[in-house]
């Protein structure tokens, strides 16, 4: 009898990438002025970043998070101007 295939769990890794503190964010400023003109008068500050969702296979949550972190460090984020937070959710 052949050995059963080892199927690694599948995960959605999300990288939330935001402009670093002190980095100008003219998009955020433009969005804020839009919100204010829509009478959201309590709007104090807006920062616009990006969310990147990657499907991966990984043995554990720690492994999935580690993959996401390395992806951010190598490509998804530019540490000169951006910071990131990685999360992982199992989908199968």
């Amino acid at each position: 009898m052949s050995e059963p295939e080892t199927v690694q769990p599948r995960w959605i890794v999300e990288a939330e990438i935001m402009p670093r503190q002190g980095v100008n964010d003219p998009q955020g400023e433009a969005v804020m002025s839009g919100l204010r003109s829509l009478q959201f008068t309590g709007t104090q500050r807006v920062r616009v970043g990006k969310l990147i969702r990657v499907e991966v296979t990984a043995a554990s949550e720690a492994d999935a998070l580690d993959q996401g972190t390395r992806m951010c460090e190598r490509l998804l984020a530019n540490p000169v101007i951006e910071e990131f937070v990685v999360s992982a959710a199992r989908i199968g």
């Binding site: 980095v23 100008n24 003219p26 998009q27 433009a30 530019n78 000169v80 101007i81």
Partner: peptide, 17 residues
Amino acid sequence: LCEAHLLPGALLRNRTL
């Protein structure tokens, strides 16, 4: 060249968008 770290820094969206 900046992304490749052959030069320092980065280039952002123009201030005016």
